[in-house]
Amino acid sequence: MKDTVGRKLRLLWLQSITCNGNTHSFLNHPELFSLLSHFDLVHHPVLESGYSMEELTDKKIPCDILILEGSFIEEGFTKNGVEVSSLVAHYAQRAEYIVSAGTCATFGGIFKQKDPEKISGFCFDGEERTERYEHYAQKLISLPGCPIHPRWLSYVLLMIASGKKVALDSLHRPVELYGYTVHSGCTRNEYFEWKIDAKQFGLKEGCLFYEQGCQGPYTRGSCNKILWNDITSKTRVGTPCFGCTEPEFPKVGLFSTRTNMGIPATMPLGIPRRAYLTLTGVVKSFKIKRFSERLLEYDK
């Protein structure tokens, strides 16, 4: 262990193959600057920071917490003439904690699809462990999401800063963030319970799981608990969940539910198919008047 007593932990944010979405999502944190005041920001892709990109590529920067954004390729992506893979290896060895911020850094994400054999997440390739896993598993915290929610990252950073242990699941995701499904807390839950599908996009009424491709019931994430932009979520504005925190994101056909003879091909997380179908058959047998009407009647 490095001696970190009496000084702030040094934070290094390093980008690989990315869209910068996690960077910008993080900038939306309402308490960004009081949060950052707990740390020494040694390098960041957008914010003023202690060291330049040139110093980063010269491998000169000290770091305690390494935040990774973007997916990885062994060869062919350089910054200032230095392979990003070697930069990451350098800093990953020195860091006390590695946070893979976003689905790309964690599992490979969208950019993995350009070259699935060569591009992957840092320690995972989809759900499979990469060679790096053994080296870094001890200090790895996975924060999948396309993008990450700013509060997911601040939770992890503040836990580290206060010397607390972050409880993780088998893919190194914090259980307090990924123990839920995106479905929990969705304002359309009543429609899911009663198996009322959304007739079309653009309505408050109906559940998006049956037709519109919503993956909320089997996607891990706190999107409907820790709200986006502190105000809402995809499903709350009628957009399906696309499963962006999952190792296989993105699947094909994101706006339609894959069904076999009308039966959803993927069951809600951990629900046996027989149990789900039994419940569906029963619940669908009732016509609930309230659910056949507009939720809010303005004319009455």
């Binding site: 027989r274 058959g281 029963v282």
Partner: peptide
């Protein structure tokens, strides 16, 4: 389907 779900569920599973 409330009272016939025992049967319908199995047919659904067969189709699925």
């Amino acid at each position: 389907m409330v009272c016939v779900s025992g049967f319908i569920t199995e047919i659904m599973i067969f189709f699925d």
